[in-house]
Amino acid sequence: MFHALPVPRRLQGRPARLLRRWLALSLLLGGLVALVLPGSARGTPGAATVVSARDLPAGTLLSAGDLEVVDLPEDVRPQGATDQAASVEGRMLVGAARAGEPLTDVRLVRAAIPGTGDPGSSTVPVRLADAGVAELLRPGQRVDVVAAAEAGRDASVLASAAVVAAVGAPDTAEPRAARAGSKGPLVLLSLPAAIATRVAATSLERSLAVTLR
């Protein structure tokens, strides 16, 4: 009859301790994977999203080189984002954007610049009554266009939320003090076609001003 050999006391309980250590190490490694790959660990699918490829200033007329398509988890992808870079090209950026920032619909306007092919909009060049105000404008800003009160006619708003497409360079040969109160550089405003016609016609007979939004 065979008898089991006695297990030395120093070896008793060692397999259980090794198993517990192995399980703890497995849990630790699993947690690290979840931190490094949150989308894969949580099962959150990514969605193609158009973002800015670099830092872009307000008023940028977007081209293919300004855009990049990346995958973003659905839970962080903002509403109004798009996965089609072609739908963003040729539009104007209203506000500055950092590199990697998703470009949503509220940050973009159809830039009515000659050659963009937007049949619903037009670009109208105007000179404002005050050169100093014109020099404050930047591409991408929204303004309301106001016809000044003249010859018994009250001031009236000709257009709301017009987009500044471009501002001509001021005449630097004339001192700023002398330019104040005089007509300043040409300002290109992007407007719906019907309203742009009205603004252009009014600018021929009345002084124009803008209020900043």
Rank of each mutant, 00 (worst) to 15 (best):
A48K: 14
D55C: 02
P57V: 06
P170I: 13
E68A: 15
S156D: 13
A155Q: 15
L56A: 03
S182I: 01
H3C: 05
A193W: 00
V70W: 04
V94S: 10
P8V: 10
T172R: 14
L19Q: 07
A97G: 07
A47N: 02
V124I: 08
V167S: 05
V157L: 14
P192Q: 09
G30D: 06
T82Q: 09
L28C: 07
A99Q: 13
A41H: 09
G132A: 15
G95I: 09
M92P: 00
R153T: 06
R179K: 14
A24M: 06
L212T: 05
T211M: 07
G95P: 00
V109E: 07
E74F: 01
L27Q: 04
D75W: 02
A209P: 03
L67G: 03
D83N: 14
T172S: 11
D154E: 12
L11A: 15
E174T: 12
R110N: 10
S40G: 10
P73T: 04
V145L: 05
R138W: 04
L128T: 11
S121L: 08
P185S: 11
E101R: 15
S160G: 10
P185H: 08
R77G: 05
D75P: 04
D66F: 02
G140V: 02
V36K: 12
A97K: 13
P8M: 11
E150Q: 10
P8C: 12
A193P: 00
A149V: 02
R9Q: 11
A180R: 14
P119W: 00
R9A: 15
L186V: 10
A201Y: 02
P78V: 11
L108C: 03
A165L: 15
V210R: 00
A209N: 13
P125M: 03
R14P: 01
G31P: 04
E205W: 02
P125I: 01
G152F: 04
L72G: 11
V145K: 02
A47M: 05
S26I: 07
Q84P: 03
S190I: 04
S190V: 07
S87Q: 06
L23Y: 05
R17D: 05
G59K: 01
A196H: 05
L103C: 05
A169D: 12
D55S: 14
S122D: 06
G184E: 12
A86E: 13
R91A: 03
L158G: 08
S182T: 15
L35M: 13
A97F: 09
A166H: 02
L189V: 01
Q84W: 00
Q79N: 08
T116I: 03
L189M: 05
V36G: 13
D171P: 00
T49E: 10
R153S: 10
I113G: 00
L191H: 03
R142N: 03
L188G: 14
L18D: 01
V51C: 14
R206F: 08
G95H: 12
D83I: 05
G132S: 15
L188A: 15
A41R: 09
G59N: 04
S40W: 12
R20L: 13
A111V: 00
A169L: 08
A134Y: 02
L61F: 07
Q79Y: 01
A161C: 03
V94P: 01
L212V: 10
V164R: 06
V76S: 12
G100F: 07
